[in-house]
Amino acid sequence: MKQENKKEHKFGMVIDLDKCTGCGSCMVSCMAENNVPFKEDESNKKDSITWMRVYKLTNGKDFPETEVVYMPRPCQHCSGKGGHGHSPCVSVCPATATDYGKDTGIVSQIYTRCFGCRYCMGACPYHARYFNWWDPKWPEGMENYLSPNVSPRMRGVVEKCSFCYHRYQLAREKAYLEEREEIEEMEYQTACTTACPAGAIVFGDLNNPEHEVTKIVKPDDHPDPRNPDVVGKSRNPKVFRLLERLGTNTKVYYLSEREWVRKAGDNYTEGEWETIKNHHGKTQISHG
């Protein structure tokens, strides 16, 4: 009976920023999939809800050197310092309305438990957590199109991306019926992954070497020698994480050929980037 929790997964994604066109399909599919409410007037982005948000970054250079990159940002599902599950938001929630699922690596959010103190929002540097400032108001008839697999939220609670956890629940349910132990890689994919027309998002189990995401990211289980709080750093020199140096240990990785994009993923003091950027290339060689 204990088999249920025997195998630990670590679901994560890698987003190829060079493929992303900024079309916004991921945002739209996410909102539709997860019953995300919207406002009549969406012009103020600071109080509207977009679990998956696409940021626009530029290299700050004048024409003709101007380059633009679009960066989709779901909840980063941080595993926290040292990867022990104390993500910035989970450890601060006073009412245990969010936890770190050690069996999946997914950071949950339970709307009926949350009482809206918003401490988690303050603690999250990615702005991945959103508050329901209003009760959701659906246009006439749209309620019938809400997904029954995702519970709707009420005003006054925090919500965020769940890596479409309900899809995992449903995939597992099917596996149970067919008396299988495990689900296939393609049985559990997030809405944004499946919606991306460019195929920029790859989702899977970072603990499973067969999964595409693991093949791209090649996560290093050893702590970063420069910062013991950081684990799961990618051994692919083209892959980086957002604000990796803070030790949040996100499970959303980004991939880009362009150096300025990789640099934009974190903060570096003057001259630091030059010493850090090739770090992984070096360790890879020394590891053989």
């Binding site: 009976m1 050690k102 999946t104 697999n149």
Partner: peptide, 14 residues
């Protein structure tokens, strides 16, 4: 009792 763990939130919440 049966699995040794009372379960993470998302085991039963959606």
């Amino acid at each position: 009792e049966r699995t040794g763990h009372q379960g993470y939130c998302f085991q039963c919440h959606k």
